[in-house]
Design a binder for these strands. Structure first.
Lengths: 260, 260
DNA sequence: CCATGCGTTCGCCTATACGGAACAGACTGT
DNA sequence: ACAGTCTGTTCCGTATAGGCGAACGCATGG
């Protein structure tokens, strides 16, 4: 709708971990707009605190972003509920757990609890974005979205292969998501990072909508032995959290759907 | 400059911990703009992932914010350096330490390390915004800014009293900041929260500019005994971090300034 | 059953942001 | 020392994009 605001989104999209600092000309080239337009845009973003000018006249993300993210994290009801279940999982297995959401085609970790074992998964943190087509949480979140949306997201973000196990075609993805939807959980067996496996299951709110996915991340060699137990525990945890959020359970939910 | 982008800043400012959810009409009233304009603005912000629509048609902050904050946190060089010094402080005293910056008149925690003692300061987290005119970090950060900027910030944000000790007038603040600038550190003796004291000192980068403030937060009853030692340790820590960032030290810096 | 609130849509009109060109300063390699 | 080429910044006319008010559909509730 509002073109100028969309530009804001595009500009901020440029600032990544790999390229955290940009100049006016660079931004202008990247977005295909005149330097003067880019200049006005960046200057205004500095004014509202989203960007910060370095002394050399270049631009970085501003700390205002942090303040906003704090408001976000402290006002999400289901995040607190999920945290309790995650603590129990960590206490039981000593493995790292994650909570993730899907928004605007991005899968983002919104909570993490690191495991307690000497060898554990540590490559992640709150706010980290990860691929939707191969991570366990990503597949869970996609599975409960309309297929057209999934197609659109894949068209936008692509399906890069990270390991030989990564799904890279839409056909494979469709059958995988179908399976995830029926089973109610998803695996990631070395599809994103070698030696790393995950199980994930959906968390639903009182309306039955999938609002987040909870996962357990385990090194490959340990995952093999206890795969079934990990799966059961994650499913149990997500069932508990969903119930606390007012979800009535699969049967009750489908029943009430029939009635309406 | 760009009016539309400024509106974005104003809108996002509305979403606070106390009032995290807004409707179109509410936003329109709060900003003094027509409903239709507010609608267009909110709809676009949803599109770029900064806001999220609830099922009831209201609006909340979107998870895109989190992804951006992650980029921000993982690309700040001096934050890593400061963290090491903070770890040493925690190891020594077992008290909570904070790292804060000033941007757009806001003081925001960008790093926190919780203490290890049974009774410790825990009321805070990364991204939390706090008052500039009474917190120790706030006073340090203000002290090294031009007085006109300080006046502007106070006019914008006000000087509310949180305890009987809070500074509430510009005159008091000016003399306090003058003292902080000369001493090179600031105290907060129950000025923000009763029973809570802090010492803070500035971190400078290679150009001599104050980029952040580091503080130690201690319960009042313990602070009394070791006040001097806390102060010395914080000053030592910030001196180390500043040096690692290429700061030449007060004397060298003023000397090089004379030459130019 | 009307009154009042909500979020949303439509289209006119003008304010506004776009974009080309020109400017000032910092490097760089002759 | 000096042209050449990068920066970031300023200016200003024009056309387009966004602000605005009115009308819409839908709840809710007295």
């Amino acid at each position: 709708m509002l073109g100028t605001v969309q530009k804001v989104g595009e500009v901020l999209e440029l600032f990544t971990r790999e390229h955290p600092e940009w100049g006016v000309s660079e931004v202008a080239k990247a977005l295909g707009i005149p330097k003067s337009s880019a200049h006005a845009l960046l200057a205004t973003l500095v004014q509202i605190g989203f960007l910060k000018r370095t002394r050399e006249g270049r631009y970085r993300l501003g700390w205002r972003i942090l303040a906003l993210s704090q408001v976000l994290l402290s006002t999400s009801s289901w995040r607190m509920e999920a945290r309790r279940a995650m603590e129990e999982l960590v206490a039981r297995f000593g493995e790292t757990t994650h909570l993730a959401v899907l928004e605007c085609g991005r899968v983002v970790y919104v909570e993490k609890l690191e495991g307690t074992r000497a060898v554990r998964v540590v490559n992640t943190g709150v706010g980290v974005e990860l691929p939707a087509h191969c991570s366990a949480v990503g597949k869970v979140l996609l599975a409960f979205r309309p297929w057209e949306e999934v197609e659109r997201i894949m068209a936008e973000r692509g399906m890069p292969a990270f390991t030989p196990n990564t799904i890279t075609t839409l056909d494979e993805l469709r059958t995988e998501l179908q399976a995830v939807r029926e089973r109610g959980y998803a695996y990631d067996i070395e599809e994103v990072v070698p030696e790393l496996c995950c199980v994930a299951a959906p968390i639903r709110d009182h309306t039955g909508e999938v609002v987040a996915a909870l996962s357990l991340s385990v090194p490959f060699y340990r995952f093999q032995q206890l795969k079934e137990e990990y799966r059961r525990s994650v499913l149990e945890a997500t069932r508990q959290v969903s119930e606390r959020l007012g979800y009535m359970g699969e049967e009750a939910w489908t029943r009430s759907r029939w009635r309406s």
